[in-house]
Design a binder for these strands. Structure first.
Lengths: 205, 205, 205, 205
DNA sequence: AATGAATGAGCATTCATTCAT
DNA sequence: TATGAATGAATGCTCATTCAT
């Protein structure tokens, strides 16, 4: 039942905006205080709405955290797939993944904090996380490496799964260090550093 | 409720034992439920003591988590230093570090869970963690790599700090994956896999 | 959402209909969940209107409960007065009252539940209830009994007020038992059972 | 592990006392405000303890209400059984039951309020109530009436179940009226009034 | 040292009511 | 009239910590 709309924005837009506002506010609040130390009223306050309103868009505090992850991970994966499909050569593809990974999180410190720190606050969540998007992400890397082996670019004496975890772990560590560091340095350039070593390790000589 | 003492253990020994018992119990409880979902009474119950007794050995629940880390990290570093001092060659040293890292955590799944998951539940804690032993651990790796560059074994176009983080990140990811995996596989052998790639990446050709 | 109107009903009629619909819906909802466990939105949903619309017809949730009682009690009393005025003899009059009481509630289980159970959820409400229609109802019974004493039909060594309460209590208990019983039996026939004993107790021998 | 006790009271006694204190406080608070309008902190305050302490003795607010009923009903039934076993003749037995019923509740107005009003605030509770002690109580009355029929004292053209409900309903109504009345009159004497009519109605002529 | 009963601050969530449209 | 999104006050319950014994 669409109500008359004054400007170009639809009623649906308003809803999306408020949902977005809550997610943004929650990301910020979680980043600063941690999930367990954040109160729902903090999130509502940050979003400029009443406490109860949060529950019109999310079922629980927990669901907010999940949504932050879901939304970001979906974008992450979609963007990743799209970009590497437009690039030729496994080395260039991996390089691009590393740039996307560090570029995206490096551009949104709060999101990075939630990803690196809060998301891991519980084994339960980590396992759901692992079962969901994370596995898919790791798979993109693994496949790219396997393709590189078939094309003769990469050493065949290494297991793609393991190599994928190593690359992910290296990138992840860059982010965690960056997040926890007090010094403000750009995260994106670390992609080159990581790839220099990683490609050195997997490329055929 | 003084327990009968078998050997000539002093009162001090009893204290140490009880402190140890609490830390062991807490590691187990934290591993299963997560830090925030664990009650002090759960820990006390697991340790077979009264709730209040916990506070004779630790100032707060938070301090217990810190102590778990402190104790493990101290052992970790001491053992690491000792072992690599007995080994010659930067490659062999790094290899030994990887083995120690995965060997130790692979032998104590509960400790591994607390390290990989619970320890990261708060930015605040992560920063303290970072400031403390973790930096020292990373430094051992960094120094070893720098030594390898001086000795001509490793490429000099990479920054030791970055390479150290990459190695740590790769090892860390192995542990996290192992912890979150439902399949029971040995963690230690992954050390070889990681080193195959990492050394390939930093060794001069 | 104006519904198509079949007959020449005025806007006023629509209002009355909606008010009725809310009361009917509320009776049903209260009967199932109890007053305190019923949400205004449940009532609105049952009535097929928006939550806010309820407040165009009733000032508060509390007022709805009052209105259910008021409306039913007014009907109850009016019908009672009318019927007993058409009947001769105090015994027959009391018998008719019992039949009306059990007949009416026996025909509307939901209303009966609200009367027997929900209406008594608060001392405050019970006192208002008592002060209002209930006293009037009891008075009809009392007067009939007093008349029977004057006419020489009933024993004069009993107080009409007490006897009236006893009859009301007996009928009320029949309803409560019927409401709470899982077995489906007709309530009306219990009127005869009650009167057999009650009249036996108050009739001159 | 009995701790040294100063006076004759055991540790167990202390617990019982506090549990009792909570039940007494809750009965008072429920009587004044009604169950749903009473806060757990009100009960704790009335009992002179901290809010959390309530939960050391009761699982929930709901359980407190149940316990009030359970305890009182158990006493009620035990006392009833004992007394009527010591009395001869069905008329005298029924008379004693009426006296006990009105005497007990007439001596504890708060308990009476909870019994008459709060206990009926929810269909669910009423059904549990019905299934539990209440049925047993009604059974005592029913059996006594049936015995009176066998002994030739009571009319045999009435069903004992129905007669039992009528007596209970009459007594119950006396209590409810007394509870809701603003005038302070003694409840116990009403027993005689009720029995005068009830026995008149069921006794053989 | 050890106990565990008692404390009370803290918080997610609900829902009656309002009001802009 | 009607709507239903938004509000925000209200509260049962938990659990880290204390302390009398």
């Amino acid at each position: 039942m669409p109500k008359p709309v004054r400007n170009g924005a639809s009623a649906r837009t308003v809803v999306i905006d408020k949902r977005e506002a809550i997610l943004r506010a929650a990301t910020k609040v979680f980043a600063v205080n941690g999930y367990f130390n954040s109160k729902v009223s903090d999130i509502a306050g940050e979003a400029g709405i009443a406490d109860g309103t949060v529950y019109l868009y999310f079922k629980s505090k927990d669901e907010i955290l999940h949504s932050i992850f879901d939304r970001a991970m979906a974008e992450f994966i979609a963007e990743g797939r799209k970009e590497i499909s437009e690039i030729d050569g496994p080395e260039a593809k991996l390089h691009r993944i590393a740039e996307l990974h560090l570029g995206r999180l490096g551009a949104d410190r709060e999101l990075a904090i939630v990803f690196q720190v809060e998301l891991r606050g519980s084994t339960k969540f980590m396992q759901e996380f692992s079962a969901a998007g994370f596995g898919e992400y790791l798979d993109i890397i693994r496949t790219t490496i396997a393709d590189g082996q078939k094309s003769g670019d990469f050493r065949t004496d290494i297991k793609p799964v393991v190599a994928a975890k190593i690359l992910y772990g290296a990138l992840d560590e860059m982010v965690t260090n960056w997040v926890l560091s007090n010094k403000a340095y750009p995260l994106l350039p670390m992609a080159g550093e990581v790839m220099k070593i990683f490609l050195g390790g997997i490329t055929k000589r």
